[in-house]
Computed example of a mutant assay.
Amino acid sequence: MVSIPYMQLRGGSSKGIYFLASDLPEDVDARDQAILDAVGRDARQIDGLGGANPLTSKVAVVSASSDADCDVDYLFVQVVVGENRVDTTPNCGNILAGVGAFAIESGLVEATHPKTMVRVLMTNSGNRCDLEIETPNGHVKYDGDTAIDGVPGTASPVICHYQDIAGSITGALLPTGNTRDTFEGLDGHYEVTCIDNGMPVVVMRADDFGVTGYENADALNNDADLKARIEAVRLKAGVAMNLGDVTDKVVPKMCLIAPPVEGGNVSSRTFIPHACHSAIGVLGAVSVATACALSGSVAEGIASIPDGLVKTLSVEHPSGEFSMTLTFDPSGAVQSAGLVRTARLLAKGELYLPKKPL
């Protein structure tokens, strides 16, 4: 076998393996094969460190940044569970939350007292996020009083300042050019809003699909007919969003929305893209909230949106809610998104991979 250094961190409500780019093969195909060996190739991921779930089958590849305005470059790699392949199309805001701690722990960034700002270039999309981390006496602080839904207990906050993330993957906030589109599905036509403010998402009204939007994730995952109808719309939307054939891609995510019931601004059930998320992804939540704030979207009459150019919005999901602050300019364009995550170092050491024959 061969060994490579690694760290495993919980980032937000996900868990991933973090590597220095210099510890992985330079060749992209060889790098991806090493990552598959590390996380696991089969549906159980029995021969790797993955948890047989999309939320625990994630990888961050980090290096010193080639951009003078950033400290580190971060490539997100999603291992597609059970399909023996990876996808580097999307970003992941949860795994991003652990990048700052990893960069400091691995010596890429020098910590300062009492806080450190780590400027991250998300190389999947070319966007930037500045991570504000508590580092008393130059050491990453993991314990704290900040709680986020989907994670037990409390931890030190990681403040994420996303800059100019509109059109992260598709090139436009509204990749179809419309606030509202209609796509033909298996059993009729569906109105949707296609949005990309950090993550390509198709926002749909839950009652259009014959569900309330308040079901738990297991109930939705066990509804094969519902998932087939959602996938039919996803394939049409992917082409319209300039993503091409998305059959084997993890974007766009699909989000069913309903009126809020727990004091938030909208209720959500997100498919990533075929399994219903037990919570909601960071950038997925930002995109959904942005769609709800746009006049003429399918969220009209469903979401409750405050006035003003700076809006604090809460997206309800199966295990709680996700809050963020969106800042708009006078023309209505999104300037930035700010939100709070937490992260914790779980393990570090050597990860063993099978040695490939020459």
Results as ranks from 00 to 15, higher is better:
78 Q>P: 09
77 V>F: 00
111 A>C: 07
96 L>G: 02
121 L>M: 13
73 D>C: 10
74 Y>E: 01
83 E>Q: 15
81 V>C: 08
83 E>F: 04
71 D>M: 11
93 G>T: 06
105 E>G: 01
86 V>K: 01
128 R>Q: 14
84 N>L: 04
117 M>P: 00
119 R>C: 04
76 F>Q: 08
132 E>K: 12
135 T>F: 02
95 I>H: 00
109 V>T: 11
112 T>N: 13
90 P>I: 13
107 G>Y: 10
97 A>N: 02
134 E>C: 07
129 C>Q: 14
70 C>Q: 13
83 E>T: 14
81 V>W: 06
68 A>T: 15
125 S>A: 11
103 A>N: 10
71 D>P: 12
112 T>Q: 15
131 L>W: 02
105 E>C: 08
90 P>A: 14
67 D>Y: 00
83 E>A: 14
110 E>W: 00
127 N>G: 05
72 V>S: 05
124 N>W: 04
105 E>P: 04
103 A>C: 10
83 E>P: 01
130 D>L: 10
83 E>V: 08
80 V>N: 08
91 N>W: 01
108 L>A: 01
109 V>N: 09
127 N>W: 00
122 M>H: 06
102 F>H: 09
70 C>G: 01
132 E>D: 15
118 V>L: 10
123 T>Y: 03
101 A>W: 00
111 A>H: 05
126 G>W: 10
98 G>R: 13
88 T>N: 14
119 R>D: 03
95 I>Y: 00
122 M>S: 15
133 I>M: 11
108 L>H: 04
129 C>L: 06
120 V>C: 12
127 N>L: 00
116 T>A: 13
98 G>K: 06
91 N>R: 05
74 Y>W: 02
135 T>V: 13
90 P>W: 04
68 A>M: 09
67 D>I: 09
98 G>F: 05
105 E>A: 14
96 L>W: 01
78 Q>S: 14
126 G>R: 07
94 N>D: 15
115 K>N: 11
72 V>L: 06
120 V>S: 11
69 D>H: 05
82 G>Y: 04
136 P>H: 09
98 G>V: 14
77 V>L: 03
72 V>P: 08
88 T>C: 15
110 E>G: 09
123 T>P: 08
